[in-house]
C-alpha cells in the first residue's frame, strides 16, 4: 500500500508506538508457537515418584500394588479394547515383555468393561497382567490424557519416561534401556 504524494508523509509517532506495542508482541508469540502441538502436554510426573496403586487384575485375583512391583524396572501401559492404536502396539509390548525378563510389565484398563477386556486378553494371550481401574483413579493420578500412554518406572519407583501414543519395538527397547540405566 502506497501513500499518496499529495501531502508530505509524516510519521505519527504516538500511533506507531501504540500499534507496535500490540502488534510486535502478538506476532512474536504466534511465530514462537507455530508448529507446537497444543494437544501434547508434558507430564509433570517425569522424574518424580510414581503414584501408588493397588488394583485387581482383569478376571479377578489378588490385588497388585505398585509397592509389590518395586525393585525391578516397571512398564505401566494404559489401554482399552476400544482403542485402535492400543491394538497396534500390543504386539510390541508382548514381545518386549518376553525379551526383557528383568523388566516387569503391567497393563491398566482405561474406561473399559472387564468382560470385554478379559475376552480380548484371552484371544491375544498377553504375557503380563492387566489391572482394572474402576473409577479411573489410577489414570487420573498418572495424569493420563487418553490411551495408549505408557510410563517407564525405575526400580526405585521413580518415573523415568512417559510415552504418548502407540509404541513400536524400537522405541520400547530404547525407553526400557533408559529406564535400566537410570536405575544405576
Amino acid at each position: 500500500m502506497e501513500v499518496s504524494a499529495a501531502r508530505p508523509a509524516r510519521v505519527n509517532v504516538k500511533v506507531l508506538a501504540a500499534a507496535s506495542l500490540v502488534v510486535v508482541p502478538l506476532l512474536a508469540i504466534l511465530v514462537l508457537n507455530l508448529g507446537r502441538d497444543p494437544r501434547s502436554v508434558r507430564s509433570p510426573l517425569v522424574g518424580r515418584e510414581a503414584p501408588g496403586f493397588a488394583l485387581s487384575p482383569v478376571g479377578g485375583g489378588a490385588q497388585v500394588a505398585l509397592d509389590s512391583l518395586r525393585g525391578k524396572p516397571l512398564v505401566v501401559n494404559f489401554w482399552a479394547t476400544w482403542c485402535v492404536p492400543c491394538f497396534e502396539e500390543q504386539a510390541a509390548l508382548s514381545a518386549g515383555a518376553r525379551a526383557f525378563p528383568g523388566v516387569k510389565f503391567v497393563g491398566v484398563i482405561y474406561e473399559d468393561e472387564e468382560a470385554r477386556s478379559a475376552q480380548f486378553l484371552k484371544e491375544r494371550g498377553e504375557p503380563y497382567p492387566s489391572l482394572m481401574d474402576p473409577e479411573g483413579k489410577t489414570a487420573i493420578a498418572y495424569g493420563v490424557f487418553g490411551v495408549p500412554e505408557t510410563f517407564f518406572i525405575d526400580g526405585g519407583g521413580r518415573i523415568v519416561e512417559k510415552h504418548v501414543g502407540p509404541l513400536d519395538s524400537e522405541t520400547l527397547a530404547l525407553l526400557v534401556r533408559r529406564t535400566l540405566e537410570s536405575a544405576r
Partner: peptide, 17 residues
C-alpha cells in the same frame, strides 16, 4: 503435598494420598 505424597502408603490409593 508432593513430599507427603511420595511417602504415603501405596495401598491407600491416590485419592487419599
Amino acid at each position: 503435598a508432593l513430599a507427603l505424597a511420595s511417602v504415603a502408603p501405596a495401598s491407600s490409593g491416590p485419592a487419599t494420598s
